[in-house]
């Protein structure tokens, strides 16, 4: 299991260890089945081509899930993901490596909770942020531990 971060361990600007994902067409089919999103642009190449796409594309919600994983890994079992926002700005295709990344933008105490705000995003091989967003996690504090 990864290390448990405490509120005091982190400073603004801290970069979260990137999460690498290599989505395949098989993963898109699994995700369609597990989520119930059967829009054909995610698994039927002919359908995608007929819709002026260059091939099947990732579900935006799958990229949302990758960012969810980044942040629940970061929060650890003693932390809690409070908020997660994502915007789907550009398409991603299977067969290419993606990185889910994040950086601490703010740390503060609110209603007794030790909160960390982060900027998060999915980055493609060219370094473009196709799916930017933000997240807030509550972390344990060494003072109240």
């Amino acid at each position: 299991m990864a290390q448990q971060f405490y509120f005091e361990d982190l400073e603004v600007g801290y970069e979260i260890a990137p999460l690498e994902k290599n989505p395949t067409t098989q993963q898109l089919v699994k995700y369609a089945g597990a989520s119930g999103d059967f829009y054909q642009i995610h698994y039927d190449k002919d359908f995608a081509l007929a819709n002026k796409l260059s091939g099947v594309i990732l579900h935006g919600a799958l990229k949302n899930a990758f960012l969810g994983q980044l942040m629940t890994d970061f929060a650890g079992d003693a932390g809690w993901l409070r908020k997660l926002s994502v915007q789907y700005r550009a398409m991603d295709m299977p067969g290419a490596k993606l990185l889910a990344k994040g950086r601490v933008t703010k740390k503060y105490v609110e209603n007794g909770e030790h909160l960390i705000d982060c900027e998060v995003w999915i980055e493609n091989e060219k370094g473009d942020k196709t799916t930017p967003g933000s997240a807030t996690v509550a972390l344990p504090s060494r003072q109240s531990a």
Binding site: G60, A61, N64, W80, L81, R82, K83, L84, S85, V86, Q87, Y88, G133
Partner: peptide
């Protein structure tokens, strides 16, 4: 139609 994104609160 496009899915523009989501804001989740847990």
């Amino acid at each position: 139609a496009l899915d523009g994104g989501s804001d989740w609160e847990y």
